[in-house]
Amino acid sequence: MLEPQSAIGDDELETGLRRLIIEALFSNATAALTTGVVLTAFALHLGANNATIGLLAALPFLAQLAQVPAIALVERIRQRKRIAVLSSVAGRSMLAVMAFAPFAGALALPVLVAATLILCFFGAIGGCAWNSWMRDLAPEDRIGRIFARRTIYATLTTLLAGLGAAVALEWTPERSAMRDFAFAGLYVLGCAAGLFSAWIVARMPEPRMPDIASAGRGLAEELIAAAR
């Protein structure tokens, strides 16, 4: 199921492209329910100071450094769907861990920060494989339309899920047990949506990576060649 394919039929390709668009509903629901202002509000609810808030804001950017070794991983394994799906499952599983942070006492903030770091790390690795895979999957003459539709779905989902999260938090008193359960519920829902997103991605076809002359070169050689 996670193996690349030497040939992809027209019907299979069209089904895969439809799934690519639908997948945006679930991946962006995950982001809307668990990142951005929701994550900041969660950290403040757990008693985070300014330094912790700044660290949480910086982690997604720092984790992008993982894309450098991810390039070598993709070139060596040459199975982008496998990397993307397994990274997604490993990273988004951390959302379930984060859901238990309000009940972890003194460990609440360390759990939140550590789980966020792991989530962002695997997200960067999976994103590297995903970008290369999508470049080969979507036909060049349709890639703009496909990702435009995906963006529309993503925007609508982010809007609705974000409003739902805001309502859930607004209806619960600050620093209360109800607010603990509200955050836990948001992260459980985000985890479920993320894992369902990974399931959809696993059912999309992956074209086999072409054999190129640079295959087998080291990462340093690849970066030097790309800079020329």
Rank of each mutant, 00 (worst) to 15 (best):
F26I: 02
L13E: 05
R82G: 14
A99M: 07
H45L: 07
A129E: 00
R19P: 04
G16K: 04
G123I: 05
S93Y: 02
V68W: 03
A90D: 06
E12T: 01
T34V: 11
N50M: 15
I8Q: 05
A24W: 11
S87L: 07
S93Q: 04
G9W: 01
F122V: 07
G91I: 02
G123V: 03
D10F: 02
N131G: 14
A99G: 11
S87V: 09
A57E: 15
A72S: 13
L25T: 09
A51F: 12
L25C: 05
W133K: 01
A58W: 09
I77L: 14
R78Q: 08
A124E: 03
V97F: 03
L95I: 07
F42N: 00
L137H: 00
L62E: 02
I83T: 09
L73C: 09
P69L: 09
F100G: 10
L95N: 07
I118V: 14
R92C: 06
G47C: 08
R92N: 12
R78L: 05
Q67S: 12
G54T: 09
C128G: 10
L109Q: 05
A31R: 07
P110G: 12
T35F: 04
L137C: 00
I125T: 03
G9Y: 02
I22A: 15
N49T: 13
I53W: 06
P60H: 06
A106T: 14
N50Y: 15
L55F: 12
G91T: 04
L56Y: 02
M98P: 02
F100L: 15
L17P: 00
N50I: 15
R76S: 15
N131Q: 12
A101L: 03
Q67Y: 08
E23C: 12
R76N: 13
Q64Y: 10
A63Q: 05
I21N: 06
S132I: 08
F121K: 13
I53A: 10
L33G: 01
L33Q: 03
S27W: 08
F122G: 00
D10W: 01
D136T: 01
L95C: 09
V111W: 12
L44A: 15
L20I: 13
F42Y: 10
L62D: 08
L33H: 06
A58P: 03
H45S: 11
M94G: 07
L65V: 13
L137E: 00
R80F: 01
A43G: 01
G91W: 01
L55C: 14
S27C: 12
A124P: 01
